[in-house]
Design a binder for these strands. Sequence first.
DNA 1: TGTACATCAGTGAACGCGCGTTCACTGATGTAC
DNA 2: TGTACATCAGTGAACGCGCGTTCACTGATGTAC
Lengths: 221, 221
Amino acid sequence: MGVSKRQTEENKQAILTAAARLFRERGIDGVGLSEIMREAGFTHGGFYNHFKSKDALVAEVVATAMTGVNESLCDAIAKPLAANDANRFARQIKYYLSTDHRDDAQRTCALAALAPDARRLGKEAQASYARGLDATLDQLASIVERDRSLKTMHETPRDRAIALYSQMLGALVLSRAVASANQPLANEILIASRKDLLRAVGDETGRTEVRRRRANPKSPP
Amino acid sequence: MGVSKRQTEENKQAILTAAARLFRERGIDGVGLSEIMREAGFTHGGFYNHFKSKDALVAEVVATAMTGVNESLCDAIAKPLAANDANRFARQIKYYLSTDHRDDAQRTCALAALAPDARRLGKEAQASYARGLDATLDQLASIVERDRSLKTMHETPRDRAIALYSQMLGALVLSRAVASANQPLANEILIASRKDLLRAVGDETGRTEVRRRRANPKSPP
DNA sequence: TGTACATCAGTGAACGCGCGTTCACTGATGTAC
DNA sequence: TGTACATCAGTGAACGCGCGTTCACTGATGTAC
């Protein structure tokens, strides 16, 4: 059709953006190229003008998502980080383990959204993922380092960051895993982990912000 | 070919076993019916003598795996549980966050292996998953309940079980995610979480069992 | 500045492939008599 | 206990479908003169 160089670059970005959103939502294997291209506003034959293969697209999507992580952590985490208050870690936990964040698969942290898929990614994409994770842990470690109330005498700041982030991610993954089958259980996981983490981090607010419901597997809705 | 009823039932079990193993290893979407049937020792046309559809197989696999969980927790966790020593939780953590368990995708805990896929499972399969998770948390809660050194005054036993298990699972998922791209980082995650959890649980042994390596993203192997 | 032409992003149809599923057929199992 | 026959697990070929990928074609862009 004839398209200016600048437009070409914008179109490629549109493809990357659409792919990133769909991958987060439904996993990499769950989305086809034709759907990505349709979502980006093109017919799917044009895909190969921008990428060598689907694998190449995946690698670029992960790399882009992880660069975003480097600059501002996840979107999810960026907002709490922007606020420069006393206990930034606590704000991050609160958002990360909120039902909003759990249910918003499109804009969630790429680290969390892709963690399940990462094991089966191509070599290049997995390397990008690992780089993003490492950078995030360093970010969190520096927050721990600067806030003396977060430090413990037994652990390095980075080790503490790893322990805290593992718990955040694990609770999010578990809560998402059962969210549509057993919502009370999903919420229970979120709330218990949130309470536990906030205390670990020295924050006592927000403990009763969300109503408590005990999951009862014997009488599902 | 003509096959006795007893043999038929055994053959179905063989299919379920093969499917369970392959699903854990490569995810549900990553394995085709023909491969499962070949692995079980049959041609793939016979699949529909045993199951209505692939979805039905998945639901049955998850349900079976989760019944196993009910009886003895995961294989991975069953061994530590069998030993009736003072701090069973500590033994479970040690095995769960070992490199052996991380790298043994075939026999790993179904809860961990399927957590990534669970979000996208069919309704029935997800319900089975949720039931298995709920039962596991109850199991862990009862261990916490019986061991007074595990209790905290701020949390119910079940909430504590949720917090601890979230951290175990999160660390395992993250370590697996980067295991082949950045092994030092993968090991660092395992070790830091393990140390943190063991201290939380009041166990000081095993802290120096595994050599420590700091992940260095700037100079990969 | 104006004209001629090569480039190449986008189109839309087609390709081979592996997937889940269906089907006609086989023959030992297991029931009816 | 022995014979006749329906059942149904297993075979192997085939089906339609959507996937990733390829390709001939188009026409505005952007360069060469």
